[in-house]
């Protein structure tokens, strides 16, 4: 198993290098001159040229990318922000906490609500509960996070005055953003749990478990859920990626000082190293989550574990 984990970790390296190359190349195309952004449009051409040379912007693209890659791998350095002149890594680590907490809370909300509701829906298929749940889940999937966020602010902050509409320092400030971001994932996980459970519930081993006189709770939670977990885990993994994407919108709506908002602000200010750093942060986080999900597969399904042991 450790071999498998090591192989998966090693596979992350080419993916991260690939992402960094694509994003580096993309940002190379971005309009505007970073030096003019720093010094202003009326700056002295000599000063502009000197700074260009100092920042290494006169070198060819591949030389600059090679330098970036070397610094990233050997020194764990992503360069300095064009605007604040502080190291990108420091800024990202400072802003990472709210983003990670937001994503973790949202996926927790999605798992805590989605899996039990999906199980009940499957067990009571075509009941009123099942029908109502499926309609709500469908609506949840259709509701973009940026609109749901605004509706939650309108209801809980403006009309009822129960929860704050911005910030991310106290638990009460975290409730609305986590609900807004997690709602779509609740719907997706509910639907996936339901359909996965429905497939398993009809299989022979469940009938056998019932015939042996097992209690219904044990049949559902131990025999059925255990076998239905693989697609649910996959969905949770992909949903985490969606949450990292959705976090950008959520952070903008609720004024959360996270990596997503830092990225949007940096794009608007044409701070290329910061944008690159933020995107790499998300790519690495997403890759780590997928790795964790893959490792969890082996605990859920012993066949996968035996393949690599």
């Amino acid at each position: 198993m450790s071999k498998y984990i090591l192989k998966r970790i090693l596979l992350l390296i080419p993916v991260i290098i690939g992402v960094s190359f694509i994003v580096f190349a993309l940002l190379e195309l971005s309009p505007g001159d970073p030096v003019r952004n720093i010094l202003g449009t009326n700056a002295d051409p000599k000063e502009v040229e000197a700074l260009r040379e100092e920042m290494g912007l006169n070198d060819p693209f591949l030389v600059r990318y090679g330098r970036f890659l070397k610094n990233m791998i050997i020194n764990r350095d992503l360069g300095d922000s064009y605007l604040t002149r502080t190291p990108v890594v420091d800024e990202i680590f400072m802003r990472a906490k709210p983003t990670v907490i937001l994503a973790a809370l949202s996926i927790s909300v999605a798992i805590i609500l989605g899996i039990p509701i999906g199980i009940i829906s499957a067990v009571k298929q075509y009941s009123i509960f099942d029908n109502v749940t499926m309609v709500i889940a469908l609506l949840g999937i259709c509701m973009p996070v940026f609109w749901l966020g605004l509706l939650l602010i309108l209801l809980f902050s403006v009309k009822l005055g129960l929860l704050p509409s911005s910030g991310f320092n106290s638990f009460s400030q975290m409730i609305l953003p986590s609900l807004a971001l997690g709602a779509q994932s609740v719907s997706v996980i509910t639907r996936m749990t339901r359909s996965s459970m429905l497939e398993v519930i009809r299989s022979d081993h469940i009938r056998t478990a019932r015939a042996k006189g097992q209690k219904e709770n044990v049949v559902i939670l131990s025999h059925a859920l255990g076998n239905a977990l693989i697609p649910i885990l996959t969905t949770i993994g992909t949903q985490f990626g969606q949450l990292l994407g959705g976090a950008v919108m959520t952070e903008v709506i609720f004024s959360i000082p996270g990596v997503g908002r830092l990225m949007v602000d940096s794009i608007k200010m044409r701070d290329v190293p910061m944008v690159l750093g933020c995107i790499l942060f998300v790519a690495v986080s997403f890759a780590i989550v997928n790795l964790v999900v893959d490792i969890l597969y082996s605990f859920v399904d012993p066949r996968i574990k035996s393949k690599f042991s």
């Binding site: 991260i16 994003v23 940002l27 949007v264 794009i267 995107i279 998300v282 790519a283």
Partner: peptide, 14 residues
């Protein structure tokens, strides 16, 4: 390896 909205954000930045 990037969520599609983030890839779109990167492309829009360019």
């Amino acid at each position: 390896s990037l969520p599609d909205i983030l890839m779109a954000i990167a492309i829009m930045a360019a």
